[in-house]
Amino acid sequence: MSEDQLNQDKASEDKPVSIWSHAFSTAGVMIGFCIVGTVLLAYTHLKTSDLIASSEKQAKLALLSQVLPPALHDNNLLQDTFKVPAGGELGNSDETFAYRGRLGGKPSAVIFEAIAPDGYSGDIKLLIAIKADGEIAGVRVLAHKETPGLGDYIDIAHSDWIKKNFDGQSLIKTKDELWKVKKDGGSFDYMAGATITPRAVVKVVHKALQYYAQHQQQIFAAGSGLKEK
């Protein structure tokens, strides 16, 4: 043991108080840094929260306009929403929002946030826009974890598969039993090497159309069945 350490030990034996004061001053420094950190973060949050909220709104609107062309509605989609209860019809385990489009006050379309739980690796999140007459206006993948280079052609950034296969589709155009990929005897394209991914997407779009067909009245009748925001 070095001389320094010996001296230190002696000092702490002589004055047990110093341990306490050391502990308190250390705790004081820690608390001081916590306070400074909290103040800095709170200030940054206050300064940025409005900007963040508005740019997120913009991004959301831009996204919604991808599935529902602006010509098909004249209302503010973000203000005309309702909640789709959790319970699996659209694959959602939590409540999700759906957006109502209206043209001249009349219902023109609805946009669902849906989840396909049976992708190749995890959930595939989608936006599905259905026109009031039951025809699909557009489908986009919001988030997915499919294999890059194989299953990711469902993403519009990689291919226009989703556009080609779903735009203009409806329950009338394609019968229930044909809502499958071609490999399973249905009428939807898929790319070799990745069938599980499109299978999941086709299934959830089909479900969304059926959900719309069943709940059409409630969806557009304000204050009934489905909860108003």
């Binding site: 949050h45 940025t48 900007l51 963040i52 997120e56 991004a59």
Partner: peptide, 8 residues
């Protein structure tokens, strides 16, 4: 937060 606000 800064990037989220200014470089969305």
């Amino acid at each position: 937060l800064g990037m989220h606000a200014y470089f969305h």
